[in-house]
Each structure stands twice: as structure tokens, then as C-alpha cells.
């Protein structure tokens, strides 16, 4: 990275001991709890269970891509992937759009009391996903909700609507967090840039559209990628909603499918699903990164 200003390499040899103190703890933990689990999941996904006869003891043997064939034939798994993709296509733009609008308003001279609003919007981020889901689950329940005008007309926990009710929980928790990242990017724009626009008589709306938004695109890409990862990994909110709505099945999202497959127990199939999901997540976020980079350079 260009900002780096490392001390010359001859020093490195002299400070080998110090380097080991700095690097070894992280390297060991990262290997044990990141790399080894990933490799182990891949290894486990290549195994399959065989029995001698119907009632013989189960033995794990190398099965090649057997489990992956199973994954690709597993309809609930693909249905759950389709469900979170639909969720993401709708929820991520809404969430980031809201975050962008609120960040721009906070950064504009139109709004007073920015410190209060910043904290008010960010507060839900301090609520764990499980607690947020429990709270909104109560708010959606017709006999408890303060919003009876809504809940008496629409069943927010029915099969048709529950996905969007969960989307609202995720949006509520993460808008403020994303807003803060975008707002930080806005704060780092030098004020001189706005001078010329002001002299030309551009209003706040035009300044936001023509100057601010293009300059915060990197922050939007970052928040977008983390949102995509989060969407594919949805687990806590739907898991909690199983208590409120029978429409949330044990294969509602990919991670729920993996969890219920692992508790059958069919560990190898669950491991293969984890590998496929991790690859899908990686490819999707990588593609978003590349697409936006190309647009930025062209």
C-alpha cells in the first residue's frame, strides 16, 4: 500500500526476534481458527458414510464429490439461497439508500443537532441481532403490538410477509452503522471542493448529487460488500422468528439449512453446503468489487 513507509529491509534481519513476538500470536490463531477450519470443512465435505448391509456399522470413507452432487440436488438448499438473494436485492439497496440519504442530510447545513441524530440512528447497532429479532417479533405480534392499525390489517408473520418483516429488522439494526461509515467518508472531503460549486450558485441537492455521492462511492462499495456477505449468512433473525411464525422453516436461509443438516447429523453434507455457501459469498462480493472498480476507472 502506498501509505506504507517501512523501515528498510536490512533492519528486518536485525529485528527478527521482535518480529516473531509481533506476528506469531496472530499467525498461530489465524491458522488454527481460520485456515484449519476451512481446510477441515473441505476435507469433511469429501467424505461419505458407508454401511455394510443395512444395519452394519457406519464408516466414513472418501467419497470424492458425492456430497457436492447431493448439494446440487438439494432443493431446499437452493430455495434458501434464492430466498436470501431476493432478500438482498430488495433490502440492501433500501438500507444503503437510507444510510446515504441520512448521511448526506447530517453532512448538509440544513440540519441542526447532528450529534443527537447521529447517536439516535446508530443506537440500534448496539442491539444484538437476537434481541432485535425478539423485540420486533413482539412488535409484529397482533396482541402486543403498539401498531395495531397495521398488525390488525396485515399479518406481518405470515408466509408471504415474514421475509420482509425480517428485512425490516436487519434494516433497523444496520442503517445507522452504514450511515456512519458513509458519513465518515463525507467528513474527509476537503471543504474547498464545495467552494466553486457554491460560487456557481449550486444548491445543497446539486452539491450532494454532483460532488458528494461520487466521492463516497468507495464507502458505498465497502458497505455493499459487507451487506451482501451478511445477507447470505442470515441466521440469528430467522432462527428467532421460528418462535413467532410457523412460516419460518428449518431451511429458511442457507445457514439454517446447514444447521439443520448438521443436526440430523449429516456432517459431510453440511460441510459441503458450507463450502458452497462460502464460495458463493466470495464470488459475489468479489464480482461486486470488480464491477464497481471498473466503473470507477472508466
Amino acid at each position: 500500500m502506498a501509505v506504507d513507509n517501512a523501515v528498510r529491509s536490512s533492519r528486518a534481519v536485525r529485528h527478527r526476534g521482535a518480529l516473531a513476538v509481533f506476528l506469531v500470536p496472530f499467525a498461530v490463531l489465524f491458522t488454527l481458527f481460520y485456515l484449519v477450519p476451512i481446510l477441515y470443512a473441505v476435507y469433511q465435505s469429501l467424505l461419505t458414510v458407508e454401511r455394510e448391509g443395512t444395519f452394519g456399522p457406519a464408516v466414513q470413507v472418501f467419497g470424492g464429490l458425492t456430497q457436492y452432487i447431493q448439494v446440487f440436488q438439494n432443493e431446499p438448499f437452493w430455495a434458501s439461497i434464492g430466498r436470501v438473494l431476493l432478500f438482498g436485492v430488495v433490502q440492501v439497496p433500501i438500507m444503503l439508500g437510507l444510510a446515504l440519504i441520512l448521511a448526506l442530510l447530517l453532512d448538509s447545513p440544513l440540519v441542526r443537532g447532528t450529534k443527537f441524530f447521529r447517536l439516535a440512528f446508530f443506537a440500534p447497532y448496539a442491539v444484538p441481532a437476537v434481541i432485535a429479532a425478539i423485540m420486533w417479533g413482539f412488535l409484529y405480534s397482533p396482541n402486543l403490538s403498539p401498531f395495531t392499525a397495521v398488525t390488525s390489517n396485515v399479518d406481518l408473520l405470515s408466509a408471504e410477509t415474514v421475509l420482509w418483516s425480517i428485512a425490516n429488522v436487519v434494516t433497523w439494526v444496520y442503517v445507522g452503522y452504514n450511515m456512519l461509515i458513509i458519513y465518515s467518508a463525507l467528513l474527509s472531503i476537503p471543504q474547498e471542493i464545495y467552494e466553486a460549486a457554491r460560487l456557481d450558485g449550486a444548491g445543497q441537492f446539486r452539491i450532494a448529487w454532483a460532488i458528494k455521492i461520487p466521492l463516497v462511492v468507495p464507502a458505498l462499495v465497502l458497505t455493499g460488500i459487507f451487506s451482501i456477505i451478511g445477507t447470505l449468512q442470515l441466521l440469528a433473525e430467522p432462527q428467532v422468528f421460528q418462535s413467532f411464525s410457523s412460516a419460518v422453516t428449518s431451511t429458511f436461509t442457507p445457514n439454517l439449512t446447514i444447521y439443520s443438516t448438521a443436526s440430523i447429523p449429516n456432517i459431510s453434507l453440511a460441510a459441503a453446503m458450507s463450502v458452497v455457501l462460502a464460495l458463493a459469498t466470495f464470488i459475489l462480493s468479489f464480482t461486486v468489487l470488480k464491477l464497481t472498480q471498473r466503473r470507477a476507472t472508466s
Binding site: 489465524f30 477450519p37 470443512a41 469433511q44 456477505i229 445457514n255 462460502a278 459469498t281 462480493s285
Partner: peptide, 20 residues
């Protein structure tokens, strides 16, 4: 390699960690 780790979500690691 560490940056790649930022893109690996914690939930994806939970099951393999349990097995280990």
C-alpha cells in the same frame, strides 16, 4: 491472506470449528 479472512464471515466458520 489476512484480508481474505475479512471476507470470510464468522458464521461460515462456526460449523467446521465445532467439528475441530
Amino acid at each position: 491472506v489476512i484480508l481474505g479472512g475479512v471476507l470470510v464471515p464468522a458464521t461460515a466458520l462456526a460449523l467446521p470449528l465445532f467439528l475441530l
